[in-house]
Structures are given as C-alpha cells and as structure tokens.
C-alpha cells in the first residue's frame, strides 16, 4: 500500500497502524521506550531467524568517533556530531538550522537470545548497520527421531 523501508508483515496491527498514521499524517509511537520525534539518530530494527539488525541513521557522523557497546542485550550507541555552521555575523546569515548538533546516545533493548560475541557493524551512506547474531543454542532445531 505505502512504501516502507522494510516490508512489514501483513497483519492486522500493522494495517491499523498504517491507517492511523495516514489519518495523523505522522508516525505513531509503537515502542515501550518512546522517543520524541526528531531524536537523533533515528533507528530501525529488523529481525531474521538468525540475527537482529539495527539500522541507525547517522548522516555526517565521523565513524571513528562512534562508540558502540553491547552489554547483555542492551546496545548502546554514542557519539558526537559537530556541524560546521558559521557563527552569525555580518558575513554569514543562518536561515535554517534543523540539523542535530552535539553529543548523542541511544540505548536499544534487543531480544534475550543475541550473541554478544557475534556482532558486526558497517556504515554506508550515513546509515550504520549493526548485525547481531542470535545464539546458536537458541536457534530452532530439527530433532531426528531415533
């Protein structure tokens, strides 16, 4: 119906959420840790049967200044983004400054079965992707009948 970054599974709640969003013209909060609109960075979460994927939208952030930590199932992202915006003086006039500037920190709760030792982070076009594998012993297994 509407394009979304990920393909949402077809269930009633998602349909309702889409509908409500359409009525409000904005996204609705659907998390136990609600964040104010405009929180930096924005985050999307996805999951597969073998991993949990975290996407953080961090345009213009120096990756070397980014700190990613995992503590059990809590993922913490923190860093700083300093914008090169000149001070207002007689030479420059700032007409719009909507972009976030300063230190940021976000904590994300992940499912309990993630493997702290199996985390991979990549960054492309200003999107940080952290891929955390699920622990092997928690993956579904087929049991052979003897």
């Amino acid at each position: 119906m509407y394009g979304s970054v990920f393909n949402f599974s077809d269930n009633l709640f998602n349909e309702l959420e889409q509908l409500q969003r359409q009525l409000n013209g904005r996204s609705i909060v659907s998390n136990i840790r609600p964040v104010a609109r405009g929180t930096f960075p924005s985050i999307n979460l996805g999951s597969t049967s073998t991993s949990v994927e975290v996407y953080a939208f961090i345009p213009g952030v120096d990756v070397s200044a980014l700190d990613i930590q995992m503590d059990k199932n809590l993922l913490t992202l923190q860093g700083e983004r300093n914008l090169d915006i000149p001070d207002e003086d007689d030479k420059a006039t700032v007409y719009a400054q909507e972009r976030f500037s300063g230190k940021f920190r976000r904590v994300i709760t992940l499912p309990d079965d993630v493997d702290v030792n199996n985390v991979k982070a990549t960054c492309k076009d200003g999107v940080l992707q952290v891929s955390i594998k699920r622990r092997e012993e928690t993956l579904p297994k087929r049991i052979e009948i003897q």
Partner: peptide
C-alpha cells in the same frame, strides 16, 4: 539499504523510502 533475506521489521522510526 541492504537487508538480509527474510528480514522482518520489528520497529521503525524511518518508515518511508
């Protein structure tokens, strides 16, 4: 964005493409 095969979105703040 590259997404692994069979990934389902569980939470999204960025919803449009």
């Amino acid at each position: 964005m590259e997404t692994p095969e069979g990934m389902e979105a569980t939470y999204a703040e960025v919803r449009d493409v």
